[in-house]
Amino acid sequence: MSATRIIDKKKLADFLETLSSDCEVIIPTVEDGNLLFSELGSSKLEDSFKGRPIVSPKEYLFPQKEKILAFDTTDKVNVDIKAYTNDKKRVIWGIRPCDLHGIKTLDAIYLSDFVDTYYQARRKNTIMMGLNCNEPCETCFCNSCQTGPFASEAYDVVFTDLGDKYLVKVGSDAGQEAVDKIPNLFAEATNDDEKKAGELEEKSKQSFQRKVDVDVAKQNLPESWDDALWAEESEMCILCGGCNFTCPTCHCFNIEDVQCGEKASIRMRYWDSCQLGGFTQMAAENTRENQAARLRQRIFHKYIYTPDKYDGAIGCTGCGRCIEVCPVNIDITHILGRVASK
């Protein structure tokens, strides 16, 4: 790929606006004190911001609710089946390294074996522009998961905030093409720029408040299967599902046929949560009857099953959202700490 470049902070808007001429550009923006992803044009670009939106950008590839099929049985025999498509071109700017990594994990799940039609359509039309984290949040532990605070992969372009300008690295052909659209907005990065980015990365790495010994935790997890800790840690769970809904790698969904006309329905798929009892409920029995088994499933899925199935990388990005979103403070770093110290 091409050399590292820089762009003046004030010119980032010009860059993104140019891109928005033929696609939707999504940016993080602060509204009423809430950091949200939003469309460029309807919201303003922040000069700088800390943290990540509480709902991860995975929803641009795997929406909270999505229409997949429409059925019309007006003609009983020749039932009309329509498949929804979504090939909207999109650039998402400001994706944190944890979330870039999350999308990489989703790629492994959705684009292997049976290729998921809907995910693939959105994925191939999405350009991901990362933004490195100079300042981790209280709940962040991406450093322990080796997904951040600076991205080393899984981006088309990645930006580092150097104060009045961004350092820009290109990671793919699609990223290169985007940057090449208005080359005059970018300048060659100097050694000083690169050095400053390196210092920022180092400083960021030093400022994490949480640390998890992932290797030891992973190693000890199988032994913890029957441990009392699962019941203890899950006893106050109020079954909100928030840990799953905000997780950048949770991919589970449910399917529901929703009536939309006298003889017509829409097949929806929508986010589901393995922390809910109904997730595994069958006609007569439930294969995960208690909350301890459900919490264990969430942690094992991220730390054991996903790496076993897909190339060894854990399915947790250390983004800390499940900690922040939990009304009763169930804390994955605390749980892993307990496991690691066994």
């Binding site: 009423d32 004190g33 809430n34 950091l35 949200l36 939106p53 509480i54 709902v55 929803e59 929406p63 909270q64 609710k65 109020i238 079954l239 909100c240 599902g241 928030g242 809904f245 929703v258 809910l276 922040e324 979103v325 939990c326 009304p327």
Partner: peptide, 25 residues
Amino acid sequence: TAVYPATSHPVSQGRLCVKGWMGHD
């Protein structure tokens, strides 16, 4: 089609119960 908890709200603080997340169909 979606719900985003308000992180700046003094009660929600970015959190919701299951009805808040999934109760609006």
